[in-house]
Design a protein around this nucleic acid. Structure first.
Lengths: 229, 229
DNA sequence: GATAATCAGATTGTCGACAATCTAACAAGA
DNA sequence: TCTTGTTAGATTGTCGACAATCTGATTATC
């Protein structure tokens, strides 16, 4: 018998599709932080009853990108400067750990995948598709987590990364500037291919700090706006 | 006006209560790994309709202690030896980070709370209440995370710890032995009160490793059982 | 005029019923 | 005997309606 690996059938529940739709809307910044999600309105727009919608929302609340208050409503999470600082500082720690775990696991498939994802980022950059650029950059970054072979770590990072994606999207959307043309990932990729693990870890830290200041400025803006209410 | 901090009103939705009930049942091992949760049966037992029950289950799926397969059912997560290894190795990393962050934040309230929680563990141990012993021990352990003042880190640890609690409960339940009488937390508490941060971090690592081997043995037993199916 | 009580509208939480899907047991055909 | 098709029962997914709760505007009371 031919040895062929079939991928699992996609989830075809309405709930799963709703989750995907909502998550995308939030992570791309189409739904703004603090915004309320009206169940009736959304369910009518999606031509779906409230039951699967509410279940989907529950998932996203647990995922940390929505907040639910009983009898008051479900809202897109507010983003504070501290949230961003916290997320980033944790990300640094996790990155170091992920690189350490993934390092001995690197093989040809790893390098190929690294190049593939790097290429995807560059393509999105050329196409000036900022949303996709953020997505692909995070996917590139996530490779070390997938190779670390630690399911809990991977899951943790995925939760963390969804927030980061949201932050970046909001940031991009706010400043509304063209995307930097140069390739900021070149060194990162090169270091992951190299033989100096410490250097890779160090760079991961510094590379992260690169956009950090800008992002923080944006978050402080958000807080000023929030304090007016 | 008197400056009094009122605690938030407890959530009075059925969903929240169901979540609490189910979580407790899972984390104490009353619901075994792999076991299927029949919606109709549970909803009848709780005298509740399936809607809030399903929403509660969705939360717990996202929380990582249940797994949901469309049109097949919702199950208590399976525990493999690798899961435990992964959780523990991540826990070490997080612990180091938490201690580092919490260290400069330590104040009198911290030390008081430390003693209080330590006392709670000792009391549960004297009462031979294994379930409560696990709970209190994890709460003691969680203090550094609460003092680290990093919401993302705290949240991450809480997710992680719910699994650890489950592992420990299953382990205890399986071996069915009396609880160790000596106080394994004495040194940990003393170090957190001291002035040598590195020593505290080191001990956190080693203290964790203490019960690790036993827990692993239990997990391997689980896997043997699972492979028979 | 300020404060408290009341009420209507909107929104969330919950329920019971129906539709879609899966499982397994059984039958049909090679 | 093995595979494939069929079917009944059980279980999950979804729906529409109702109940509980909140919000704010209005009215009543001092």
């Amino acid at each position: 018998m031919a040895k062929l690996d079939f991928a699992p059938i996609a989830d075809t529940t309405r709930r799963a599709e709703i989750v995907a739709l909502l998550r995308r809307a939030i992570l791309t910044g189409q739904l703004e932080p603090g915004q309320k999600l009206n169940e009736l309105r959304i369910s009518e727009q999606m031509r779906v009853s409230r039951a699967p919608l509410r279940e989907a929302m529950r998932e996203l609340v647990q995922e940390g990108i929505l907040t639910g208050i009983p009898y008051a409503g479900t809202f897109v999470v507010d983003v504070t400067a501290k949230d961003i600082i916290d997320a980033y500082s944790l990300n640094k720690v996790l990155d170091e750990f992920a690189i350490e775990l993934a390092w001995p696991q690197r093989d040809q498939r790893f390098f190929d995948e690294l190049d593939r994802r790097h290429e995807a980022v560059k393509q999105a950059t050329r196409a000036k598709d900022t949303t996709r650029q953020i997505e692909t950059a995070l996917q590139l970054h996530g490779l070390i987590y997938e190779w670390a072979d630690n399911s809990v770590l991977l899951e943790t990072w995925q939760r963390l990364t969804s927030r980061l994606q949201m932050y970046f999207a909001l940031h991009q959307r706010a400043r509304n500037e063209p995307v930097p043309a140069e390739d900021v990932h070149e060194t990162y990729v090169a270091l992951l291919k190299g033989s100096d693990m410490r250097a890779a870890q160090r760079h991961a830290r510094e590379h992260i700090d690169l956009d950090f200041e800008e992002l923080l400025a944006y978050a402080r803006g958000l807080e000023r706006r929030a304090s007016k209410n």
